[in-house]
Protein backbone atom coordinates (compact mmCIF):
# COMPACT_ATOMS: atom_id res chain seq x y z
CA UNK A 1 0.00 0.00 0.00
CA UNK A 2 2.81 2.34 0.80
CA UNK A 3 4.84 1.39 -2.29
CA UNK A 4 5.69 4.35 -4.46
CA UNK A 5 5.29 4.16 -8.23
CA UNK A 6 9.04 4.01 -8.60
CA UNK A 7 9.36 1.01 -6.32
CA UNK A 8 6.76 -0.97 -8.19
CA UNK A 9 8.58 -0.14 -11.40
CA UNK A 10 11.75 -1.74 -10.23
CA UNK A 11 12.40 -5.46 -9.77
CA UNK A 12 14.70 -6.92 -7.15
CA UNK A 13 17.68 -7.00 -9.48
CA UNK A 14 17.46 -3.35 -10.49
CA UNK A 15 15.82 -3.99 -13.85
CA UNK A 16 12.94 -1.76 -14.79
CA UNK A 17 9.86 -2.06 -16.91
CA UNK A 18 11.59 0.37 -19.23
CA UNK A 19 14.43 -2.12 -19.75
CA UNK A 20 11.90 -4.77 -20.64
CA UNK A 21 10.13 -2.45 -23.08
CA UNK A 22 13.45 -1.51 -24.71
CA UNK A 23 14.42 -5.14 -25.07
CA UNK A 24 11.04 -6.12 -26.47
CA UNK A 25 11.10 -3.24 -28.94
CA UNK A 26 14.61 -4.08 -30.15
CA UNK A 27 13.73 -7.76 -30.50
CA UNK A 28 10.58 -7.00 -32.47
CA UNK A 29 12.46 -4.50 -34.62
CA UNK A 30 15.15 -7.08 -35.36
CA UNK A 31 12.55 -9.70 -36.25
CA UNK A 32 10.81 -7.19 -38.49
CA UNK A 33 14.06 -6.26 -40.23
CA UNK A 34 14.88 -9.94 -40.79
CA UNK A 35 11.40 -10.49 -42.23
CA UNK A 36 11.90 -7.54 -44.56
CA UNK A 37 15.31 -8.77 -45.73
CA UNK A 38 14.21 -12.36 -46.37
CA UNK A 39 12.35 -11.66 -49.67
CA UNK A 40 15.50 -10.01 -50.99
CA UNK A 41 17.67 -12.97 -49.98
CA UNK A 42 15.18 -15.53 -51.25
CA UNK A 43 14.84 -13.73 -54.59
CA UNK A 44 18.35 -14.98 -55.30
CA UNK A 45 17.26 -18.63 -55.07
CA UNK A 46 16.22 -20.42 -58.30
CA UNK A 47 13.11 -18.74 -59.76
CA UNK A 48 9.91 -20.60 -60.68
CA UNK A 49 10.76 -20.73 -64.40
CA UNK A 50 14.24 -22.03 -63.61
CA UNK A 51 12.68 -24.75 -61.47
CA UNK A 52 10.09 -25.51 -64.18
CA UNK A 53 12.89 -26.37 -66.59
CA UNK A 54 14.21 -28.94 -64.19
CA UNK A 55 13.30 -32.12 -66.05
CA UNK A 56 14.10 -33.32 -69.59
CA UNK A 57 13.27 -36.40 -71.67
CA UNK A 58 15.86 -38.31 -73.65
CA UNK A 59 15.23 -40.84 -76.42
CA UNK A 60 17.66 -43.73 -75.89
CA UNK A 61 16.93 -45.53 -79.19
CA UNK A 62 19.77 -44.03 -81.24
CA UNK A 63 22.45 -44.67 -78.60
CA UNK A 64 24.45 -47.75 -79.53
CA UNK A 65 26.10 -50.13 -77.10
CA UNK A 66 29.41 -48.66 -75.94
CA UNK A 67 28.36 -45.15 -76.92
CA UNK A 68 28.29 -42.22 -74.51
CA UNK A 69 26.22 -39.09 -75.06
CA UNK A 70 25.98 -35.79 -73.19
CA UNK A 71 22.70 -33.94 -72.64
CA UNK A 72 22.15 -30.63 -70.88
CA UNK A 73 20.01 -30.71 -67.76
CA UNK A 74 19.66 -27.77 -65.37
CA UNK A 75 22.53 -26.07 -67.17
CA UNK A 76 24.85 -28.97 -66.43
CA UNK A 77 26.04 -31.84 -68.59
CA UNK A 78 24.49 -35.26 -67.93
CA UNK A 79 26.44 -38.29 -69.16
CA UNK A 80 24.42 -41.20 -70.52
CA UNK A 81 26.60 -44.27 -70.98
CA UNK A 82 25.24 -47.30 -72.86
CA UNK A 83 27.63 -49.73 -71.23
CA UNK A 84 28.98 -52.89 -72.84
CA UNK A 85 28.87 -56.21 -70.96
CA UNK A 86 32.64 -55.92 -70.40
CA UNK A 87 32.23 -52.49 -68.77
CA UNK A 88 29.41 -53.73 -66.55
CA UNK A 89 31.55 -56.71 -65.52
CA UNK A 90 34.50 -54.44 -64.72
CA UNK A 91 32.34 -52.04 -62.71
CA UNK A 92 30.86 -54.89 -60.68
CA UNK A 93 34.25 -56.52 -60.18
CA UNK A 94 35.45 -53.26 -58.62
CA UNK A 95 32.67 -53.23 -56.02
CA UNK A 96 35.13 -54.84 -53.62
CA UNK A 97 38.02 -52.47 -54.39
CA UNK A 98 39.13 -49.79 -51.96
CA UNK A 99 36.68 -46.96 -52.64
CA UNK A 100 36.78 -43.45 -51.25
CA UNK A 101 33.01 -43.13 -51.48
CA UNK A 102 31.89 -46.78 -51.22
CA UNK A 103 28.87 -47.68 -53.33
CA UNK A 104 28.11 -50.86 -55.28
CA UNK A 105 27.46 -50.56 -59.00
CA UNK A 106 23.96 -52.02 -58.65
CA UNK A 107 22.94 -49.11 -56.41
CA UNK A 108 24.11 -46.60 -59.05
CA UNK A 109 22.01 -47.85 -61.99
CA UNK A 110 18.40 -48.79 -62.66
CA UNK A 111 19.27 -50.93 -65.70
CA UNK A 112 22.81 -52.30 -65.79
CA UNK A 113 23.47 -51.18 -69.37
CA UNK A 114 22.42 -47.58 -68.76
CA UNK A 115 24.65 -45.48 -66.51
CA UNK A 116 23.31 -41.95 -65.99
CA UNK A 117 25.58 -39.39 -64.27
CA UNK A 118 25.80 -35.66 -63.70
CA UNK A 119 28.95 -34.84 -65.63
CA UNK A 120 30.37 -32.49 -63.04
CA UNK A 121 33.52 -33.34 -61.13
CA UNK A 122 32.77 -33.41 -57.41
CA UNK A 123 36.01 -31.57 -56.69
CA UNK A 124 35.47 -28.08 -58.09
CA UNK A 125 32.90 -28.54 -60.83
CA UNK A 126 34.83 -29.15 -64.04
CA UNK A 127 33.44 -31.45 -66.75
CA UNK A 128 35.43 -34.71 -66.84
CA UNK A 129 36.71 -36.07 -70.16
CA UNK A 130 35.85 -39.48 -71.61
CA UNK A 131 32.56 -38.83 -73.41
CA UNK A 132 34.04 -38.59 -76.89
CA UNK A 133 36.15 -41.15 -78.72
CA UNK A 134 39.82 -40.42 -78.24
CA UNK A 135 39.42 -38.54 -74.97
CA UNK A 136 41.30 -39.91 -71.96
CA UNK A 137 39.10 -42.10 -69.76
CA UNK A 138 41.49 -42.29 -66.84
CA UNK A 139 43.06 -45.38 -65.31
CA UNK A 140 39.75 -47.14 -64.63
CA UNK A 141 38.05 -46.88 -68.05
CA UNK A 142 35.57 -44.29 -66.80
CA UNK A 143 36.18 -40.56 -66.84
CA UNK A 144 39.15 -38.30 -66.20
CA UNK A 145 38.91 -34.71 -64.95
CA UNK A 146 41.62 -32.57 -66.56
CA UNK A 147 41.46 -29.77 -63.99
CA UNK A 148 43.01 -31.46 -61.00
CA UNK A 149 43.40 -35.06 -62.16
CA UNK A 150 40.49 -37.06 -60.69
CA UNK A 151 39.92 -40.56 -62.10
CA UNK A 152 36.43 -42.09 -62.14
CA UNK A 153 35.70 -45.76 -62.93
CA UNK A 154 33.15 -47.44 -65.21
CA UNK A 155 30.51 -46.83 -62.56
CA UNK A 156 31.45 -43.15 -62.18
CA UNK A 157 33.00 -43.75 -58.77
CA UNK A 158 35.98 -41.70 -57.62
CA UNK A 159 39.11 -43.87 -57.60
CA UNK A 160 42.08 -41.50 -57.68
CA UNK A 161 42.69 -37.73 -57.38
CA UNK A 162 41.33 -34.93 -55.20
CA UNK A 163 37.55 -35.32 -55.73
CA UNK A 164 35.80 -36.44 -52.54
CA UNK A 165 32.66 -38.07 -53.97
CA UNK A 166 31.44 -40.28 -56.81
CA UNK A 167 29.85 -38.59 -59.83
CA UNK A 168 26.26 -37.85 -58.81
CA UNK A 169 23.46 -40.00 -60.15
CA UNK A 170 20.54 -37.67 -60.96
CA UNK A 171 16.94 -38.63 -60.27
CA UNK A 172 15.60 -40.32 -63.41
CA UNK A 173 12.88 -42.70 -64.49
CA UNK A 174 12.41 -44.94 -67.51
CA UNK A 175 9.12 -43.78 -69.04
CA UNK A 176 9.38 -46.67 -71.54
CA UNK A 177 12.24 -49.00 -72.36
CA UNK A 178 13.77 -46.40 -74.63
CA UNK A 179 12.54 -43.12 -73.12
CA UNK A 180 14.30 -41.60 -70.12
CA UNK A 181 13.15 -38.69 -68.00
CA UNK A 182 15.83 -36.90 -66.01
CA UNK A 183 14.72 -34.76 -63.09
Amino acid sequence: MSESVKDSDQGDDGETRRDFLTLATVALGAAGAAAAVWPLVDSMNPAADTLALSSIEVDLKPIETGQRITVKWRGKPVFIDHRTQAQIKRARADDGAKLRDPEVDKARVKKAEWLVLVGVCTHLGCVPLGQKTGQPRGEFDGWFCPCHGSHYDASGRIRKGPAPKNLTVPTYTFLTDTMLRIG
Partner: peptide, 17 residues
Protein backbone atom coordinates in the same frame (compact mmCIF):
# COMPACT_ATOMS: atom_id res chain seq x y z
CA UNK B 1 25.90 -22.66 -53.90
CA UNK B 2 22.43 -23.00 -55.45
CA UNK B 3 21.53 -19.66 -53.87
CA UNK B 4 24.68 -18.02 -55.25
CA UNK B 5 23.92 -19.39 -58.73
CA UNK B 6 20.18 -18.75 -58.68
CA UNK B 7 19.87 -22.10 -60.44
CA UNK B 8 21.56 -25.47 -60.72
CA UNK B 9 24.70 -24.27 -62.47
CA UNK B 10 26.44 -21.01 -63.31
CA UNK B 11 23.91 -19.59 -65.74
CA UNK B 12 22.00 -16.47 -66.72
CA UNK B 13 20.78 -15.58 -63.18
CA UNK B 14 24.40 -15.84 -62.00
CA UNK B 15 25.64 -13.53 -64.75
CA UNK B 16 22.96 -10.94 -64.04
CA UNK B 17 23.57 -10.80 -60.29
Amino acid sequence: VTWLWGGFAVDNPTLQR
